[in-house]
Design a protein around this nucleic acid. Structure first.
Lengths: 232, 232
DNA sequence: TTACCGGATGTAGCAGTGCTATATGAATCA
DNA sequence: TGATTCATATAGCACTGCTACATCCGGTAA
């Protein structure tokens, strides 16, 4: 508790574990290897963390500290949507730079449990979407918008980690697609016939399936043969 | 090779492993537990699969077989975008129904490696985006569109698995956001349905008088009852 | 028939794992 | 000083993935 030299061993154990995890992200690691790296025996580790999961939790906590530290260093642009963009990119960058930490923080897929510390950045995101909603710039509830952003942001980050290759183009595309979805600001205005096709296809229950299919067929034919509506 | 009763043990081992994995998705499982369930000793398992990873690979392969089996049972609507929607929902449904299989298929985050069988459904998706692109309905390359859909689809599925709760609203929101992003059909400054009505009415010769009239009727109904029809 | 051979399975045991009961040194405090 | 508490070590348990070796059993060839 006092943070004197006694807790130094604890910190060194966490660091050693983080190093081992970073050396093989997603893989398992040995507690004995951690202890050897620190020059200590297993009961010492168990004295501090109680279990392997306890050590992992401590590493995860440290990961979120690191992540939030970077996040805190960013200054707000004043525009919540712009801040969401910056937060998105920071999230992806952190994941690619620290795949060991990131896979523990967001990459463990065990039904029913996710690290409690996930709520910390999630609340920051929710604050941003709430501000955006207050400014009337969202077409969905701030909670839904935050969930939407989180899901796609994590998804695109994990994908880049498993592919072992940064894909800024994909990240940007998904980011803008997500922002467009929650703000309702689509891309450029485009062929209204094509847009009508999408609307009809998105709601096949309104007209019925057969009618919708025929409608789509007609609209497509209209788009091909009508000089007023060139297909882009 | 002959597929006689000899290979029955192999299949039963895979089934037993799949059951154990399904019982604790994302968790590790013991080879001895698999052997006990089948009533066989470890060397038998190693005779067939060579290693634990070999068994896991076989289970993953079986998972993709199952998934593609369900996918093959779906009939195409004729509209590639609509097929992408159906494929999206099928993907999420499979993941939620088979979290054990799914976490092995798409939930393992190890940099540099992902199951080779992932390419099978990916190619189906790419075929759909390619068809959509041929119809001039995409604003990005088919490969990028497929990557975008895959990333968000997997992301939203994994999220629902870790939350241990289906969230059809979130899935639909991300799905439509993704489709809007690749088709370029976001919210329009002007109602595209109304614009489509004008175009159709201006070219009654393309479809014929009766069809055009019916088309206009449908588009109007769609505009009245579709909640996604942009109003602002 | 007899001998053989290869695939399938069992016995026994390796090294390594997470974890723990117990003990010892050192520091703190009454 | 004596007592208590924290940090660390020794030793070992139960379990893991994995494997060298031996055994059975069915088909094939002489």
């Amino acid at each position: 508790m006092t943070g004197t030299a006694t807790s130094d061993t604890r910190v060194r154990l966490i660091d050693a574990a983080a190093d081992l995890i970073a050396a093989a992200p997603g893989e398992d690691f040995s507690l004995r290897a951690v202890c050897d790296a620190v020059g200590v025996k297993m009961p010492t580790l168990y004295h501090f963390f109680g279990s392997k999961q306890g050590l992992i939790d401590a590493v995860v906590e440290r990961g979120f500290d690191l992540y939030l530290g970077e996040k805190a260093a960013m200054e707000s642009s004043g525009d919540p949507i712009q801040d969401i963009r910056a937060g998105w990119d920071a999230h992806v960058a952190f994941g690619l730079a620290n795949p060991g930490f990131y896979t523990l923080m967001y990459g463990k897929v065990r039904p029913g449990y996710s690290p409690a510390a996930q709520s910390r950045p999630s609340e920051i995101l929710l604050a941003l979407t709430t501000r955006a909603a207050d400014q009337g710039r969202l077409v969905v509830a701030p909670e839904q918008a935050a969930a939407h952003v989180l899901v796609t942001n994590v998804g695109v980050t994990l994908r880049q980690i498993v592919l072992a290759a940064a894909d800024p183009e994909l990240s940007a595309a998904v980011r803008e697609g997500t922002i467009a979805a929650i703000t309702g600001t689509g891309a450029q205005p485009r062929n209204p016939l094509a847009a009508a096709v999408e609307i009809a296809a998105a709601h096949p229950d309104v007209l019925g399936r057969a009618e919708t299919q025929l409608l789509v067929e007609w609209l497509t034919k209209l788009g091909e043969q009508s000089p007023a509506a060139p297909t882009a």
